[in-house]
Design a binder for these strands. Structure first.
Lengths: 155, 155
DNA sequence: ATTGTTGCAAATATTTTGCATCAAT
DNA sequence: ATTGATGCAAAATATTTGCAACAAT
């Protein structure tokens, strides 16, 4: 719970929270909308979006945003990991080799645990690029760090 | 190069490829569009999108798609990794603890190498869920595996 | 009574597509 | 000559927002 505004309990909010908690497959907003409509046929999609934001703000659910919102393109076709700057959004190449061993082990372990066929992974580092770091002198670092911990957005 | 259709060299395609290779920060389609327009003022955004697809299809550039296209929501607010099914798109929780040690070491190493402030990572496993695996009996597994290797989409 | 919330519709933003014309092979 | 590529505009998709009416505190 990190927001300072009051948490006003509405029927819509209540049902939406219930629906998100009911399913275990990370539903999209319109999946939730369709389910909630069975209970509240007149609810609007805008209300669903707004409430999902509010619920996440209060830490009751987790909002999973795509790692970056738009497609991007890369002239470097070799395999590599990326570092994303939380402040300016810039994505840079990580100057380390994709670590073949330890993460391959994790993949194998997971495959055995789950009966899934695991055959790859994506690893993205999150931080502040040097420019933003200077400019912000740690301010955003701490702010964002808290946000990330609170939402469990990544580890 | 994996497409069977002919690669037709047009001026637009040439300039677009040049622009993607020129910048090192993983540009978006409209960034490329704006840059290409300095050389070809009448090019359309549709042409840019279509060519970026074609260039990626021929392995000349890499297309970076967001890990999932829409926002998703999660009733489980604990930290955890995810497994994404390439076939049906379902995202499940990975039944392993976020590995604090080895990846934290990587984070530290990267921080030192780059002067970035690294304070987190996202790790996503890619595979086929058990249902899709049965249904497809390995077919898509191999297909997609090749695709992934070719595009370097993930490692 | 105050102020946040709702439903609706319109706006935004990103990407895709239909189509007639044009250009590379 | 054939067939893929282009420019343009319209469509499709996902999300946000303005606003008047409404409801929780």
């Amino acid at each position: 719970m990190k927001s300072d505004k009051p948490y006003r309990l509405t029927r819509q909010r209540e049902v939406i929270l219930e629906e998100v908690r009911k399913v275990y497959h990370h539903p999209t907003a319109d999946e939730i909308y369709e389910n909630v409509r069975k209970t509240l046929p007149h609810i609007s999609l805008g209300t669903v979006y707004r409430n999902l934001d509010v619920l996440a703000e209060f830490g009751l659910i987790k909002k999973m945003e795509p790692d970056f919102p738009q497609m991007r393109f890369d002239g470097n076709t070799k395999e590599h990991y990326h570092i994303t700057c939380l402040h300016c959004g810039m994505i840079e190449d990580a100057p380390i080799e994709p670590s073949g061993n330890s993460l391959k082990n994790l993949e194998n372990a997971l495959g055995n645990l789950t009966k899934h066929g695991i055959f790859g992974h994506k690893l993205e580092f999150i931080g502040l690029c040097s420019k933003c770091r200077e400019k912000e002198n740690g301010r955003i670092f701490k702010e964002k760090l808290n946000e990330c911990i609170d939402t469990g957005g990544f580890k």
